[in-house]
């Protein structure tokens, strides 16, 4: 699997997560198991681009999961400007498995604004759209 000349990784205290394998493109569920969004990108606390990293600098940490309008940029390249991406803070994440599970309810999160807008502006105006189907 790996070349014999590679040094084995010394043991680390915590669980290991690889961004591509375990986080990116995973579905995000809220604390009730309701789908919120998917992880489109991640935001790190550093380092600053193009600046030398002094020896002994603490490693950056994962600040937030990012989601946003990435369909176009996935097809044509690039990424949306940082201001257009919606952040879900890492402190709200409860578990990472097949899906990323949050410890908070998804309703008030910014990530669900499109769904809320469609519900309030379009679905609510359809006759019978304001109550549960019976």
């Amino acid at each position: 699997m790996t070349s014999p000349d590679l040094v084995p990784l010394p043991p680390v205290a915590g669980r290991i997560l690889d961004a591509q394998l375990h986080l990116l493109d995973r579905q995000v569920l809220d604390t009730d198991g309701v789908p919120v969004t998917t992880v489109d990108d991640l935001e790190l606390s550093g380092p600053a681009l193009g600046e030398e990293i002094p020896v002994g600098t603490p490693a950056p940490v994962l600040d937030a999961l990012l989601t946003g309008p990435v369909l176009g940029t996935r097809i044509f390249g690039g990424r949306p400007p940082s201001s257009r991406l919606i952040r879900i803070p890492w402190k709200d994440v409860a578990d990472v498995g097949v899906v990323v599970r949050l410890g908070v309810r998804g309703g008030p999160l910014d990530a669900g604004w499109v769904e809320r807008w469609v519900r309030d502006k379009i679905i609510a105006r359809i006759p019978g759209g304001r109550h549960d189907p019976r």
Binding site: A59, V61, L62
Partner: peptide
Amino acid sequence: DVRFVLDGTPRQLMSEARVL
């Protein structure tokens, strides 16, 4: 890929994910 390890400051739900 970027590898993280969950051994940072403990938060309310999970520890901070530090870049390994």
